[in-house]
């Protein structure tokens, strides 16, 4: 009986660490992003920037955009409008919130649209000086950005994590999987048969 508890405890603790633990704490998921780009798009009143992306989960809740305010000199207002098919969000912040460089977090009330929704992000500013406020973009003027999606429901989060772990295991090297699961099996067997 003691051995059985030991085996159940050990295997359960692995499941806890690998699936349940992330489900409890990870409340948002990163989705579509553009992580490549080192161009500095001079961001002024006359040069607004608009870009589009398709969501890959529901409940879009924040967008992180890479910007640069050299020496944190510029304190102009920056306006952001995120528009979905049924709803939109507007945010305002100042140049002093932009570092040199910084990934600027734009957090808002989550959208309720389903996955694969097309969003438009429009960035405008009161800045008139071309040399001290920039958006980091790729060569097609697409900003370096990351999107995040709310995930607060434990049950759906748990299901998501189970699928995600299965997906990771599937993509992982076969030798590692064999060694790893072989070790679990061997340990269970060892505890079971040994005095």
């Amino acid at each position: 009986m003691k051995k059985t508890f030991l085996i159940i405890g050990l295997n359960l603790s692995l499941v806890m660490v690998l699936v349940v633990f992330p489900s409890v704490f990870i409340r948002s998921r990163q989705g579509n992003s553009n992580t490549n780009g080192n161009q500095q798009f001079s961001f002024t009143t006359n040069r607004p920037l608009t870009f589009y992306f398709n969501s890959n989960f529901s409940d879009l809740q924040s967008i992180f955009i890479d910007m640069k305010n050299p020496n944190i000199d510029n304190n102009s207002k920056i306006y952001v409008k995120i528009s979905g098919p049924t709803d939109s969000r507007q945010l305002t912040f100042s140049g002093s919130n932009v570092g040199d460089p910084a990934t600027v977090p734009l957090k808002f009330l989550p959208f309720t649209d389903p996955p694969l929704t097309k969003y438009q992000v429009s960035l405008t500013t009161e800045n008139t000086k071309s040399e001290n406020l920039f958006i980091i973009t790729n060569q097609n003027n697409l900003p370096v950005f990351k999107t995040f999606y709310q995930q607060t429901n434990f049950k759906s989060n748990l299901m998501f994590n189970i699928n995600r772990q299965l997906d990771i295991i599937h993509n992982r090297n076969l030798i590692f999987n064999l060694i790893y699961f072989g070790t679990i099996f061997f340990l269970d067997y060892y505890i079971l048969i040994h005095d």
């Binding site: 050990l10 060694i179 061997f186 340990l187 060892y190 505890i191 040994h194």
Partner: peptide, 17 residues
């Protein structure tokens, strides 16, 4: 020996993560 074997196996299970 059993104690050492269990210590090794537990390490092998957890250290990759």
């Amino acid at each position: 020996k059993t104690i050492i074997a269990i210590a090794i196996l537990i390490r092998l299970l957890f250290i990759p993560f």
